[in-house]
């Protein structure tokens, strides 16, 4: 298992203006993501490592302090849901 997450095959992440949120689309299903989940998944591109994702988010949201805990929690849940995988 690598340290670089990517979206599982068949999953698509995009911004939906009508819902004013990021969504995760998959076969016959859709998850509406809250702001922080959307911000984290936007960083998951199959190239950035977990550490780089945290670093990038901390740069974008300097007032939020350390984000490692939040990011880990979400990535763990997203892995459990089989939304993302670690090839």
């Amino acid at each position: 298992m690598s340290n670089i997450p990517r979206l599982r095959r068949g999953f698509r992440f995009q911004w939906e203006p009508a819902q004013q949120s990021h969504v995760l689309l998959y076969p016959e299903g859709m998850v509406r993501l809250n702001g922080s989940a959307g911000a984290i998944l936007a960083e998951v591109n199959g190239a950035r490592s977990r550490a780089e994702i945290i670093e990038s988010l901390e740069r974008q949201f300097p007032e939020a302090g350390s984000l490692a805990g939040d990011v880990d929690e979400f990535l763990t849940e997203a892995t459990r849901q089989h939304w993302i995988e670690w090839p």
Binding site: E16, P17, A18, Q19, V23, L25, E28, G29, M30
Partner: peptide, 8 residues
């Protein structure tokens, strides 16, 4: 345009 995202 109305917001549909899933299409079958």
């Amino acid at each position: 345009a109305m917001g549909a995202a899933q299409l079958g």
